[in-house]
């Protein structure tokens, strides 16, 4: 009898505990999720928060963790956020180097006139269609900002 009572009360206590725990997790989850930036997924299990998703930089990742830690009832935060890889910046050659290299590249195309200003190569004159790809390939390797092709194609 006594054992049954003890067992009963244990079950009730456990149920109450679980019942009280679950909505708490959900409430914490909702509260944190509302404060986090888009793209961050928040999961909460017994007060342990897990952050997943992809963010732009390390600062955003750290900030997301702070937000989660600051929430009442949070025991720990596992920060599984990943930072988006940064694409290598576009390299554009200096005008001085570009002017020299463009002169070298266009030397064998006497009907083509090339001018360089602020990284932009402006092509004027005329050229046979068959030679156009070769010229464009040569010029594109010189890291220009832009190739402004005003050539008359024969």
């Amino acid at each position: 009898m006594k054992t049954t009572k003890l067992l009963m009360s244990t079950v009730i206590a456990a149920t109450l505990f679980l019942a009280s725990c679950k909505p708490k997790d959900a409430a914490i989850q909702a509260a944190i999720q509302a404060k986090e930036a888009a793209g961050i997924t928040v999961a909460v299990t017994k007060g342990d928060v897990t952050l997943t998703g992809e963010v732009d930089d390390e600062a955003t990742k750290a900030k997301a963790e702070e937000i989660a830690k600051a929430e009442k009832g949070v025991k720990s935060v596992i920060n599984n956020l990943t930072v988006k890889p940064v694409a290598a910046p576009v390299v554009i050659a200096d005008d001085s180097a570009l002017i020299k290299n463009v002169a070298d590249a266009t030397k064998d195309f006497p009907t083509v006139k090339a001018e360089v200003k602020d990284g932009v190569i402006v092509l004027t004159g005329e050229l046979k269609k068959a030679s156009l790809i070769t010229l464009m390939q040569h010029l594109s390797a010189l890291k220009p900002k832009k190739i402004d092709n005003k050539l008359t194609i024969k």
Partner: peptide, 11 residues
Amino acid sequence: PNFTSGDLVLN
């Protein structure tokens, strides 16, 4: 065609 747009640098 003939690379006239000037909106791509293919290296």
